[in-house]
Design a protein around this nucleic acid. Structure first.
Lengths: 222, 222
DNA sequence: AACAATTATGAAAAATTTTTCATCAGTAAG
DNA sequence: CTTACTGATGAAAAATTTTTCATAATTGTT
């Protein structure tokens, strides 16, 4: 797991980091809000532990900033205070949970697991077979490999997943994926299906898209 | 507002529909789960009112199905029963709220507003100026017009929005948007900035991307 | 004002995606 | 086993996106 620790007290930050690494995770420390933003460019984190009091940008401000720019990485605020106002502010700023200092490492991992459990219910990935369609990056993930999809392939796969288990005819695909109201004069659909099949089935070793002769396609997975 | 009413009792469905239309919204009625899925292809709804008991596919099943395929339109379940088990099931299936029958129209609108208030906090749109960057469709929305962005333009705009208010130099843009570790040998960045500017500034009549001579770019909005 | 450095721009070139088309393969039914 | 129809495939063509390049415009400095 990739963990970002945003904490100006180096002692606390390093203790957390050591413990996470001991548990087999990967942890990065940022000593202030600006460093944190810096660290997040390009990299992906599964969770952010964020100190409430930070030099320059406060934890609350950073939290708001991240949320306002569409970043929804789970955030746990670390706060020294234990008054109710904090909790309200924290949740309103878009944090997922908070831990009051001093805390034990066990408490931190417990909170992380709880937050991630909740978060995973809303994560923007659609699983099928051994794969996942990542709706944000528009890629298919399989055993830490990434398959890039073109825009059309992405839309078609999303459509198949939405309708998995039911036969869909080409008129509907044409209408819903291509936004054509008239029926396709050519075989664009078949060609796109072919290309999508190749991408998916080169990676996984099974076929998801079944052809129902004279009727359409049927997507099977799980 | 676009409202989908999934309800097999036509009397209730039509009463709701009439009331919504009277309030200036747009409402579509689906009499069963399959019709509902049909209605959702291609169309967008802001909220779904979903009957608990439906012929064929139950409300709960439909709810689960939508959520499992990445659809996160707010759902309010309409249920005749009032036992705790329902509430738990509803929320676990991914519904946002529930209303027990019989209900008044005022109650429905109140619940809708409450759900939408909560939902909007997590919606995947980044506002800037009079515009919105839609992270799902990868378009810019402005006065019910849509501006299509290419993949690079989208990534660059997202990056600008994430870093708005701070000057970002080209080495960082190159690293974070293009994933090049070496500095750009050509002026791809300037060209992409130019094209993005044209798209945004043809539509809105103001300039968002400011050039800081010798330093980089600065995105200003709000 | 003149100069050097930086940025902007139009247009060509390259790469990629999307569509078309001709042809081959598979299916159902007589 | 044919036949007629439906779907699959490779490759060409068209459209779009991305990059490159030459040149023009702008900025800061002397």
């Amino acid at each position: 797991m990739e963990i970002l620790i945003v904490e100006d007290e180096e002692r606390i930050a390093n203790t957390l980091k050591k413990n996470f690494i001991k548990e087999g995770h990967h942890a990065v420390v940022a000593l202030n809000g600006e460093d944190a933003i810096e660290s997040m460019q390009g990299s992906h984190f599964d969770i952010i532990l964020l100190d409430w009091r930070l030099p320059k940008l406060t934890g609350l401000e950073l939290c708001k900033k991240l949320r306002s720019t569409g970043n929804d990485t789970p955030i746990i605020l670390l706060t020294a205070l234990n008054d109710i106002q904090n909790k309200v502010d924290a949740l309103e700023a878009g944090a997922d949970d908070y831990i009051t200092k001093p805390f034990s490492f066990e408490e931190v991992t417990a909170r992380i697991n709880a937050v991630l459990r909740r978060y995973k219910a809303t994560i923007k990935k659609i699983p099928f077979g051994e794969m996942n369609l990542n709706l944000i990056d528009r890629t298919v993930e399989h055993e830490n490999k990434l398959i890039k999809l073109s825009a059309r392939e992405f839309e078609l796969l999303k459509y198949f997943l939405f309708n998995k288990g039911t036969i869909i005819n080409k008129e509907k695909i044409c209408k819903d994926v291509w936004n054509f109201d008239f029926s396709p004069m050519t075989n664009v659909i078949e060609v796109t299906v072919k290309n999508l099949r190749k991408k998916l089935e080169t990676e996984a070793n099974c076929s998801f898209i079944k052809t129902i002769y004279g009727e359409g396609y049927l997507f099977l997975a799980d």
